[in-house]
Design a protein around this nucleic acid. Structure first.
Length: 463
RNA sequence: GACCCUUUCAUCUAGUGGCCAAGGAUGCUACGUUUUCAUCGUAGUCACAGAGGUUCAAAUCCUCUAGGGGUCGCCA
């Protein structure tokens, strides 16, 4: 049987990285088995839907490159279908109308809480045959088993047993007739042919409810995998205050989708000691049975490390393309290769990489005071002036970094100084700071004229 | 409060009774490479939640305790 998995977000906000991870796990399971990965939008609560949220989710999917099969399924467009099943259950006596008002329910809950019981519906209309109270639009409740245990084998957690008394006759249709979550999820998962349901373990308690629906409707129960949550760096539940939780925020911060995906796949899943996984490797190696039971904490340092790794291994042309969004357009620059080779090992994010590039491309407008003080002292002015002269009278061509290196070697030899004596003031002259890319590369990129100009400007500031 | 899940370095994790005085990775600290920073390389740092059992042998099996998380909606 071919594997079918799905991701089923409700369009109430952006795509969360926790959601992306379960989506990734589902997607990998489908791709690994040459199966299908479906996308379904859980929008049964008409009042909470948002078009913008839906777009944001699709956009995020697009950015990370998770493709889904077939058309997106919208639950809001399937109400007729759900209605048929509600009627069927009503007819078969597997569901019933409940005339309890919200106020009555609240009172019941409070009473149960006071008695330190788990609040749940008491089944008072389960076998009701009398005359319904007037003025109350009934909800439809499904008959859950009243004794025994509801059991299932979770692919991650193992066997789960929930006492039937813990599962009440939950509502499958609201007073206005619209169906509710646990009911439609079970129907859609069954109808869409899901074989493996991979979701967050906050759904663990929904599973017995959905199993009640599966049984009532005679559907085949899929395999469930409940993945533990992602916590923040303090081990607490991830919330908006923990920085980026929106997937697209990572794009804005200069992360590569392959780094994010690699980071996420290793949160709660592993394959021996391997840390770096290309998409192809993930697909080849992923198996949901290897998903960990326990929650994991989000760790920005590791993401940054992975991102740096992927930046280093991304072809320069592609980087140039990506950098356009970060205020650097070097796609047409004739020294593109040299520029990126000189900088790509210095940026953990595209934002940082863009800064490095700007630093080289734009002449410094000011010199870091500390750096200037340290570098522009002693006979620095004289050395720099001589260096300019040397560049101006150099007879060999000056194109490659190695060409400039020869000049550097020449001045070191002639003046009998260490590299630092020319290196430090030269670096501050060119970049305005004490750190950065290799001098040979910088000079080769900006060219001899610009090099001389920057040094002259620096020399002018030295007393 | 009730019910359910969970517990190996600071963090992600390997580990399925002997190969574990617990391995890898990130982080951190050194050192080396580099004119600088970064990269890279080498080394160091750091953990089986606790207590009882079972066994010749336990990180691994059982019990209890403690910590963490989730769920208890006419939300999804």
């Amino acid at each position: 049987m071919s594997v079918v998995t799905r991701f089923a977000p409700s369009p109430t906000g952006y795509l969360h990285i926790g959601g992306l991870r379960t989506a990734l796990f589902s997607w990998l399971t489908a791709r690994h088995n040459d199966g299908k990965f479906l996308l379904r939008i859980e929008d049964t609560d008409l009042s909470r839907n948002s078009e913008a949220a839906l777009e944001a989710i699709i956009k995020a999917f697009d950015w990370v490159g998770l493709n889904y099969d077939g058309d997106v399924v919208y639950q809001s467009k399937r109400f007729d279908l759900y209605k048929q099943y509600i009627d069927q259950l009503l007819e078969e006596g597997k569901a019933y109308k409940c005339y309890m008002t919200k106020e009555e329910l609240d009172a019941l809950r409070e009473e149960q809480m006071a008695k330190k019981e788990r609040p749940r519906y008491d089944g008072r209309y389960r076998d009701f045959t009398g005359i319904p109270p007037e003025g109350v639009d009934p909800v439809i409740r499904i008959k859950a088993p009243q004794e025994g245990t509801i059991s299932f084998v979770d692919g991650v957690k193992g066997e789960i047993n929930i006492a039937a008394t813990e599962v009440d006759d939950f509502i499958i249709a609201r007073a206005d007739g619209t169906p509710t979550y646990n009911f439609v999820v079970a129907i859609d998962d069954a109808l869409m042919g899901l074989t493996d349901v991979i979701r967050g373990d906050d759904h663990l308690y929904n599973t017995p409810k959905q199993i009640v629906v599966y049984h009532a409707l005679g559907f085949k129960i899929p395999k469930f995998y409940h993945v533990a949550m992602i916590n923040n760096e303090q081990g607490k539940k991830l919330s908006k205050r923990d920085g980026a939780t929106d997937v697209m925020e990572y794009k804005a911060q200069g992360f590569l989708p392959e780094a994010l995906l690699n980071f996420l796949v290793r949160l709660g899943w592993s394959h021996g000691d391997q840390e770096i996984f290309s998409l192809e490797e993930m697909i080849a190696l992923f198996d949901p049975k290897d998903i960990n039971k326990s929650a994991s904490s989000y760790n920005l340092d590791k993401l940054l490390w992975l991102n740096a790794h992927y930046i280093k291994n991304t072809p320069n042309e592609k980087l140039a393309e990506l950098l356009k969004e970060f205020g650097v357009d070097i796609a047409e620059h004739d020294k593109l290769e040299m520029l990126l080779d000189a900088t790509k090992e210095r940026g953990k994010t595209l934002v940082e990489l863009a800064e490095q590039i700007k630093l080289i491309l734009n002449a410094p407008t000011e010199y870091d005071p500390k750096a200037a003080k340290k570098a522009f002292k002693g006979n620095a002015k004289e050395i720099l002036t001589d260096f300019i002269a040397m560049l101006q009278t150099w007879e060999k061509p000056l194109h490659l970094p190695s060409d400039y290196h020869e000049v550097l070697e020449a001045i070191v030899a002639e003046k009998e100084i260490g590299f630092g004596k020319i290196g430090q003031p030269l670096r501050v002259s060119l970049l305005g700071s004490m750190t950065g890319s290799g001098l040979d590369e910088i000079m080769a990129i900006i060219g001899v004229d610009e090099t001389i100009e920057r040094i002259e400007r620096a020399v002018a500031t030295i007393a």
